[in-house]
């Protein structure tokens, strides 16, 4: 039975917020596709950090899940082991940002957090890659280092330069909610 108090409670997800989240999911997917010609250089972690800071863990998890299904379907890599591994790897971003770095707002510190997330993502992905592609561990680990550096450095740079203006923009967009 509803009471007058919970009648005025803000819903978990408003229609407007849902639309904005859908748009942000498309941006996450589109930027990765647009930057696909560059090896491991993208703004995926920047956007995930931004979304996690703005929407929190659960809603960012929803964005990541939809993005991952879209990405895996488009890239023909929808595989239970690979995609689950990728989901776990990507979920480390909002998990860390919403726990360890919950109170961090400085873009330099968040840039380091983003770089850490990039390395974690790459390391978590070693296991499903070995499983699915039968890749030997040591050669993969060695050959992956420059790719890890590219993802970490591009995420670091993206967060350092773009996190503050994008956060202002996103907050402005969300404040327009009536």
């Amino acid at each position: 039975m509803s009471t007058p108090a919970n009648k005025t409670e803000k819903p978990f997800l408003s229609a407007r917020e849902l639309c904005i989240m859908a748009l942000l999911t498309v941006i996450l997917f589109a930027q990765e596709q647009l930057m696909n010609f560059l090896p491991n250089i993208n703004f995926t972690i920047l956007l995930m950090v931004l979304y996690a800071k703005t929407f929190g863990f659960v809603k960012t998890g929803m964005i990541i899940t939809v993005y991952l299904i879209l990405d895996a379907t488009f890239m023909a890599s929808l595989n239970p082991i690979w995609t689950t591994g990728q989901w776990i790897a990507w979920m480390t971003v909002p998990l860390l940002i919403c726990t360890v770095f919950k109170k961090t707002e400085d873009s330099l510190k968040l840039a380091f957090a983003g770089a850490l997330c990039a390395f974690l993502y790459c390391w978590v992905m070693i296991l499903p890659t070995m499983w699915v592609l039968h890749t030997p561990f040591v050669p993969y680990l060695i050959k992956d280092v420059p790719f890890e550096l590219l993802l970490a450095a591009s995420s670091f740079l993206g967060i350092l330069l773009l996190y503050d203006p994008l956060q202002k923009l996103l907050k402005k967009l969300l404040r327009m909610e009536g």
Binding site: S107, L108, P146, L149, A152, S154, L157
Partner: peptide
């Protein structure tokens, strides 16, 4: 400090890219 870190990140990206490509 941020500018210096940004320059360092660009150097890392360039070095890793050259190594790969």
């Amino acid at each position: 400090k941020k500018v210096l870190w940004a320059i360092l990140a660009v150097i890392v990206i360039a070095a890793a890219y050259i190594l790969i490509a």
